[in-house]
Every structure is written in C-alpha cells, then in structure tokens.
Design a binder for these strands. Structure first.
Lengths: 217, 217
DNA sequence: TTAAAAACAGTCAAACCATCCTGTTTCAAG
DNA sequence: CTTGAAACAGGATGGTTTGACTGTTTTTAA
C-alpha cells in the first residue's frame, strides 16, 4: 500500500518536494471521497454511511475507492482529520476579524460559535460523536480532535477577552455556560428549526456574559 | 394480537376484567423484551440494536420474540411508548414532592430535570432521537412522544412556578434557557463525566432563574 | 517506445441482519 | 382426554455490507 494519507494536497502548493504531479493531483480524489463521506454523514447518519453509498456519492466505483482507502475506518479517520482542520480554520477566521459595527466581542464570539454550530460540519461531527459513545475504535479516532478543538476554542476565547484573564472563575463559568447553551440549542435544531424564542436565549446569553466579564464574584 | 401493552402487569392487579391469566401473564415477556431493547439502546446505540441482540439479551429465541413483536419497528414503537410513560411518571413524581429543606422550587426543578437527564432512559431516548434525524419512520414514532413530554414539562413548570404566570416572556426565556443548558450538559456527559465546573453552571442557572422570576423585563 | 506504477472498475465470499416459515411445548377450555 | 391456541425454538431465505481479489486503463519515468 504505497499511499500516503497524511495530508491533503489540493492543487498547487505544499512546500518541500515537487512531487510526481499529475498523478498526485489525483489525491483530489481522496478529497472527493472524504467530502462524499461527510455528505453521507449529514444526509444519512453514521450508521447508514456505508462504503457503497460513499462511493456512489463520490461518483466512483467501490473498487476505486478501496484503492485510495483500504478500509471504511480509514475513510472515517481521514474525514475526522479533514473536518477537524476545516472547523478549526473556519473558527479561527471568524474570530480573527473585527466585530461588525454595533457589535462587540461578546456578540461576535456568540454569533461566531453559533454559526459554527449550525454548519453541516458540526452535524457530521456530531453524528460521529454519538456513534463514538458505543464504538471504541471510532472514539479513539474522534477524541483527540474533539479535545483539540475544545482547547483551541478556549484559547481563542481567552485572547478575545483579555480583560477576563484576571477573573478566572467567571471566565470559566461563562465559557461553560456558552458551550452548553449553544450545544443544547444546536442539537435541538437537528430536528426542529430556529425560532424567535431561541434568538432571545442567545441575546440573554450575551447579556450574562457581559455581566460576568464586568463583575467580580 | 390480543395482548394489551398499555400497562405493565407483573403479577396480580389490573382492574376491569379477570382476563385469561396464566398465559396472559406472559405479557411480562413483552416487558422483558422491551427492557432488553432499551438496554441495547444504551449499551450499543440504535444502529447496533438488532433483533438478534435484543433476543439474546432477553434470553429468548428470535422466533419467540418475533411471536410477540412481528417486526423490529414494532419493538421500537413499544419501547418508545414504554420509555415515554416511564419518563413522564418519574418526572411527575419528582416534581410533585415538596422541596427538600434548604431548597426552593427552583432548585428542585433544576435538580429534578437534571437527574432526569442523567438517567439511562434519557440516553435511550437520545439515541433514538439522533437516529430519527435521518430515519423518517422512526421520527414519526418518536416525535409525538417528544412533543408530549415537552408539553408536560412546560405545564408542570407552570404549575410549579405560578408566580411566573404573569411574566410570560421571562418564563419562556427561563424555560428555554434551562432546557438548552441542561440538554447541552447531558449530551456532553454521554462521553465525559460531570465535574465541579458543571455544578457551578447549574447553580448559576438557578440563580438566573430566580432573577428572571423576580424581575419584570 | 516500453514497462512499471497508480488510478480505476467490478466480482466474490464471508458475515450479518430482518423476516418468514415450520416445528415443539405448555396451557386451558370443552 | 382431546383439541386448539398461544408461547416458544430455530432453521431458511433474501438482502446488505465489508474487504479481498482480479482485471483494465491511464500516467509517468526510463
């Protein structure tokens, strides 16, 4: 099996070695497969994401796909890495820009994380997280990415609200509160849809976060 | 199928008709199967809850089980009804009793719902809810129970906090907030375990609920 | 130009699952 | 005691899924 599957390599970068291109560009097939797998997770759920369906959605034969990924779990592993990188990049990008006029960092943080929660990538990750509860092999793959993302979120939040650094307790509380509120909402919206009531919850959350940032316990 | 499955009937009650017992007592087999199915949901997740495994866990042959429930979906349907009744009864019971000394209705409500979230019954229901996202047949079965439970929770909360009735907005906000915080926490605890930090979130939630109950918008 | 390597296609066997089917035992009514 | 119904057992069938295997085309490097 002379296939690397450490890094994606879309078209024309990747420092280090001018690899045997042309054929290597068909590593885009890998990306095609990974994205098909993610679509399957979103559309069908983890259980029904079979190699047959992934291949069909990617427009490949099963044999061709098994050439790139010798087993189903290797596709999942690649999908986890891919999703993790994508989610992290999107989150950093959203947090790096200046708040819109009329909004502050709190609103930006809440809106940013909330947007992140509504993205199909989160749905895909969530499907895997639920499956991982009763699937140790999947859990072993997923857990590091989950930990890493949470850590990144925490660090980014710290940078975003430097004034909170001194109020450790309040910061942790606000962080946890935001996390739980938004995750709970996100999961509700897998089956229901967002209403005006939910927007009020988000606005209330913002209000409480500002309160926590401003006062000492 | 002349078998009732409205109520559990272990040994010797059930008003109305002195039915053809002895054989009817084997309706307890139905309960056995249903409880085995629920255990499977908790231990293995929805996808791996197969008729074979359920039968094995119930200590029956597949044929015997299929005699009581002609199809897998009929087991699931019965399990949904069973879970719904159980959860509802437990929730009502928890809310009906007087608060412990040193606690108020807010704490009782929060603790009660939180205890409910940590129960295996919730895990089983959650597994089905996630599967239902991509399984219309299951969704059709699960949705009414979900709606009913939510409605019951809302009504019970209203009775528990009559002083909130006038403050419609605040009540709805507090209700939604509680719901999302606790659901988010519960889902985190499917994979992690509860920490001191999480208790602080619950206590903070209580504090904010009291605040919302006391002030006008 | 030629030959090796990689991309790609499709078949096959083993395992598993849901359901159908035929038996066997238990029980209660006649 | 007989008879029929229900509880139970377990094999048979049809369908899926996975991963291995064989064969074909394209690409690249010698």
């Amino acid at each position: 099996m002379p296939i690397d599957h450490n890094e994606k390599s879309t078209v024309t970068h990747e420092a280090g070695a001018p690899l045997g291109w042309q054929a290597q560009k068909s590593a885009s097939t890998r990306q095609l497969i990974i994205e098909a797998a993610i679509k399957c997770l979103v559309d069908l759920g983890y259980a029904r994401t079979t190699t047959t369906v992934i291949a069909a959605k990617a427009g490949l034969s099963r044999g061709a796909m098994l050439h790139h990924f010798p087993s189903k779990i290797s596709i999942i592993r690649a999908a986890v890495d891919y999703l993790h990188a994508k989610r992290l990049r999107a989150f950093r990008k959203a947090m790096a820009k200046e708040p819109d006029p009329g909004a502050d960092h709190v609103r930006m943080g809440v809106e940013g994380y909330w947007a992140h929660m509504k993205h199909p990538w989160f749905v895909a990750f969530f499907e895997m997280a639920v499956a991982a509860r009763t699937d140790k092999e999947l859990a072993a793959i997923l857990f590091p990415a989950q930990e890493s993302f949470e850590h990144e979120w925490y660090q980014t939040s710290l940078e975003l609200f430097p004034e909170w650094k001194r109020k450790g307790e309040n910061f942790v509380l606000g962080f946890d509160l935001s996390r739980y509120v938004m995750e709970g909402m996100a999961i509700s919206f897998l089956t229901h849809k967002e209403t005006e009531r939910d927007k009020r919850v988000l606005r209330y959350l913002e209000e409480k976060l500002r309160e926590l940032a401003g006062k000492d316990r």
